[in-house]
């Protein structure tokens, strides 16, 4: 004990240093938020890393169980995939319109030739007369938006006169006010993302952002989204309102289209032909 005391008093500088240094550092850690946070964080980091290592170990032990559950899930998914792939999705799908009792069917077709740079653009699809396509049928885009009309049909192929054509005119309505108009492209505007809605009666108010849908008066089913008004009050030389709309259809990336078959189209045509013009 005495020796220890002598030892301590001989090296008192060092022991006093240890004591005061400890006090100083603890004061620093206690009173300075930054230093404290760094100390705590690094110790947390050490603990966290240790736990992570442990976890890796645990996961390794659980691998068998995880494997089994994954295999079971895989089998389930494969079964459901089988149910999907065996169905021919390119077959006729029926859309039953219960209000007007009309019946449209959609036929999916692949675009094999597309054109967007000309004044009058025509594209070709890989379905033709053998698939039941006839001239004048409406063609729509997969998600939303219109494409055009069937123009000429061969046995296996058909051409579409797209909306980007001077002769294409689609009957549309402003969704909010149900005001009738017609959709055309061109007329000084050759941007494939824009089109004009013309011949809207003057008393109708159109606002930017209004949805434009098909009217159902032509070959198109009623209510297919066409686009949104982007600019109102476009000056034209007639007594009707015109507006510029942003098309939903992106003609530049069109891969698949739906051809709309209208069951009553011929009946309607025959019936209407009985009415003589200028009667």
């Amino acid at each position: 004990m005495r020796n220890l005391w002598i030892f301590i008093s001989r090296y008192n500088a060092f022991f006093l240093f240890i004591i005061f240094f400890t006090i100083g550092v603890s004061l620093t850690l206690k009173n300075n938020a930054y230093q404290r946070s760094v100390t705590l964080n690094s110790s947390n980091e050490v603990v966290g890393t240790a736990y992570e290592r442990l976890n890796v170990f645990k996961r390794y032990l659980n691998l068998g169980m995880v494997n089994d559950s994954l295999a079971a899930e895989n089998a389930k998914l494969k079964t459901s995939l089988l149910a999907l792939t065996t169905v021919d999705s390119a077959k006729d799908t029926k859309v039953i319109d219960t209000i007007t009792n009309q019946q449209y069917t959609y036929l999916a077709a692949k675009v094999i030739k597309n054109s967007i740079t000309l004044r009058n653009n025509v594209m070709t699809i890989n379905k033709g007369a053998l698939d039941g396509i006839k001239g004048g049928m409406a063609v729509i885009a997969p998600q939303r938006g219109v494409v055009g009309f069937i123009r000429d049909v061969s046995d296996h192929l058909a051409t579409i006169q797209s909306l980007l054509h001077k002769d294409t005119k689609i009957s549309v309505v402003v969704k909010k006010s149900q005001a009738l108009g017609s959709l055309v492209w061109g007329d000084g505007n050759f941007n494939i993302k824009k089109a004009l809605i013309k011949e809207v009666p003057n008393h109708i108010k159109m606002y930017v952002g209004d949805s434009i849908v098909t009217s159902g008066f032509g070959s198109f089913p009623k209510g297919i989204l066409v686009g949104r008004v982007s600019k109102t009050n476009v000056a034209t030389n007639d007594n009707f309102l015109s507006a510029e709309i942003n098309l939903f259809t992106d003609f530049s990336t069109l891969q698949y289209v739906y051809v709309v078959k209208d069951k009553t189209a011929e009946e309607q045509k025959a019936l209407e032909s009985l009415v003589k013009p200028n009667e």
Binding site: A13, F17, F20, G24, V25, S26, L27, T28, K30, N32
Partner: peptide, 19 residues
């Protein structure tokens, strides 16, 4: 406003001085 930092540094200085 650095509680303890200068104190610690000074203690170290004292130790170096003695040594």
């Amino acid at each position: 406003d650095t509680m303890g930092v200068h104190a610690t540094a000074c203690v170290v200085l004292a130790f170096v001085r003695i040594s």
